[in-house]
């Protein structure tokens, strides 16, 4: 929490410096909007920003859930046989370096313009790092813990949920972190490149519109929200979960 407050303080200090530079340089609002005008944009557009943010979060949530389910499936498949493990690791090596946004043209061809294409890009961006971390996590479960589970009579799904999942949780958590970051980036980038279908759009679409309307303060307001959500999710969700789990268990991985 103190870390979180520090981040906020840092943003405030950065805002002051920003303003000083702007005033000293006499830059036009078009290039260098003042903190005041950004604040005004934030306030007057609050309803739009909130609905766009909710939309972004919703679509990222959906994408992440799909990606997590797929990644879990992929992981289970790949640990159930050497043959599948090779296929999945090869696929991962091919797909992992491909930025999600690069498949946007394909996504549009397959799914048309609309939420489905953006969802596809989000899922694609998140699923590979997720599989990577999940797979590493499952592979690194101490054999003894697995066998204690089997010894107790656990097998299959029950063993996976009660032993494998918590045992690989440090890796799963860092996978979720990376997956969330990639999904968030992908959703903003996809909307920024191709806009959105109709009234349904998230923060990327907000930036896109503000850019086309040349409302630079609005662009900065949108960016600020994107940054703040990133910080909030990190500090209020991930750091909290980390503190309650892997930090408490001392099984944190660096």
């Amino acid at each position: 929490m103190r870390d979180f407050l520090w981040k906020i303080a840092f943003i405030l200090v950065a805002a002051i410096i920003w303003e000083l530079i702007r005033l000293a340089g006499g830059y036009p609002k078009l290039l260098f909007p003042g903190v005041g005008s950004i604040a005004i944009a934030l306030w007057t557009e609050r309803l739009d920003i909130i609905s766009k943010t909710l939309f972004s979060l919703k679509i990222i949530g959906m994408g992440l859930i799909v990606a997590i389910v797929l990644a879990m499936l992929g992981t289970f498949i790949s640990i159930s046989g050497k043959f599948f493990a090779e296929i999945v690791t090869d696929l991962m090596a091919i797909m992992h370096p491909l930025p999600g946004i690069a498949i946007l043209p394909v996504a549009i061809l397959w799914f048309g313009i609309g939420i489905k294409a953006i969802l596809f890009v989000i899922v694609f961006s998140a699923v590979w790092p997720l599989i990577n971390h999940f797979y590493t996590g499952f592979r690194s479960i101490p054999v003894n813990q697995l066998e204690v589970g089997r010894n107790l009579g656990l097998a299959g799904w029950e063993l996976a949920m009660k032993v494998m999942l918590p045992a690989s949780f440090p890796h799963i958590l860092s996978g979720l972190r990376t997956g969330w970051a990639r999904a968030w980036q992908a959703s903003v980038a996809a909307e920024l490149v191709f806009g959105a279908a109709g009234g349904q759009g998230g923060l990327g679409w907000y930036l896109y519109k503000k850019r086309f309307m040349m409302e630079t303060p609005g662009v900065f307001a949108g960016m600020l929200i994107i940054v703040l959500i990133g910080i909030a999710v990190e500090y209020l969700i991930f750091a909290g979960v980390e503190k309650r789990t892997v930090r408490k268990w001392k099984t944190i991985i660096s």
């Binding site: 813990q145 089997r150 010894n151 107790l152 032993v163």
Partner: peptide, 19 residues
Amino acid sequence: KPGPDRFMIFQGLDQLFPW
């Protein structure tokens, strides 16, 4: 198959669930 009527204790110090 494995079962709790025969319980194994290993040499490794990592057999307790750390969580």
